[in-house]
């Protein structure tokens, strides 16, 4: 085309193109500088973002490790001034409360997740929406809920803490379960249907096994979130400085120890708080990393 327009009077399109190229060439230096500065700022922000986050972890590690002694893991919490205090009662409480919450919410969450994955009506839509919104409800409200609904009748008890924590975990498990189940290739369940299997069999033998990696990831992440919660426990399990393995009684838990001790003026209690913080953080991070690893592992096994 350009050869044709060589002698002809000014081609408006070519003119316009030249004009644009001229502007682009004239501004390229400025644009490049501008771009470098802006990109540089992005990098700086990334560094700024990483610093406090790394600081939290390193600080907890540095302050918490010295607190880890045999007594820390084997002795119950003791008042300030009495040596060799530990957090054994809190560890036990966190494990028992976490176990109860997990044992109830995983089956229930999976059922509800299957329901959501297999339904598209208005009821499912409403439940899906409320599950989404419930994941964002401030956790303190679940504590208030546990207090109003159960503590007033039954008194402070570990299982009510599990109830409040479970209310936080349930919507997470439901939505993660739904996402995982919807991710299963529909051909698999269609093949099952073609073989005459009932829907229950398809769910149990085909869909759930295939969705397992996603379900496990979701469940472990929900557990990690649940055991780290403090506010719901303050309203429901009350705290207990003695060893208590009976979930119908007030119990102690790691987040409570950290919260209560961190506002104390005594150095030995604060050290226990750091030790407990390191323990809780490690547990949560291990659950998180474990869920990723397990999901990847199961995915590889399949292939």
């Amino acid at each position: 085309m350009t050869t044709l327009s060589f002698d002809s009077p000014a081609d408006p399109i070519l003119e316009r193109r030249r004009q644009i190229q001229g502007i682009a060439k004239a501004t390229v230096g400025r644009r490049k500088t501008y771009s470098r500065v802006a990109i540089g700022i992005c990098w700086v922000f990334l560094v700024i973002a990483v610093i406090p986050l790394v600081a939290v972890i390193l600080y907890t590690l540095a302050k918490g490790l010295p607190a880890w002694s045999t007594g820390f893991f084997t002795q119950p919490t003791k008042p300030e001034g009495i040596p060799n205090g530990g957090v054994w009662n809190a560890i036990l409480g966190t494990v028992i409360i976490g176990a109860i919450a997990t044992a109830v919410t995983i089956p229930l969450g999976l059922l509800a997740g299957l329901f959501l994955a297999e339904s598209d009506g208005w009821a499912a839509g409403a439940i899906r929406f409320s599950a989404d919104v419930m994941t964002g409800v401030p956790s303190i409200l679940m504590g208030i809920f546990g207090y109003i609904a159960l503590v007033r009748t039954f008194g402070y008890a570990g299982w009510i803490g599990a109830f409040s924590i479970g209310m936080i975990m349930l919507p997470v498990i439901m939505r993660a379960g739904e996402t995982a189940i919807r991710g299963v290739d529909p051909h698999l369940s269609e093949a099952g249907l073609a073989l005459g299997a009932r829907k229950f069999m398809i769910a149990r033998r085909i869909v759930l096994p295939a969705a397992l990696p996603g379900i496990i990831t979701g469940a472990l992440l929900a557990i990690a979130r649940g055991v780290g919660e403090t506010a719901p426990l303050l309203f429901t399990i009350f705290g207990n400085q003695y060893l208590q393995a009976n979930p119908t009684k007030p119990m102690e838990a790691l987040p409570l120890v950290i919260y209560n001790y961190s506002s104390q003026p005594y150095a030995d209690l604060i050290q226990i708080a750091w030790g407990a913080a390191l323990l809780l953080m490690s547990a949560v991070l291990i659950l998180n990393i474990g869920s990723r690893w397990l999901a990847g592992f199961l995915q590889r096994e399949r292939r």
Binding site: V50, A55, V56, K63, L221, R225, G228, L285, N288, I289
Partner: peptide, 24 residues
């Protein structure tokens, strides 16, 4: 690596941040 690290940090219990805030 960084993406995973960020997601992990979202999981650190809030009381740990509180302890860090009040002490450090």
């Amino acid at each position: 690596l960084l993406g995973t690290a960020v997601e992990l940090l979202a999981a650190v219990p809030s009381v740990v941040y509180g302890l860090w805030g009040v002490i450090a």
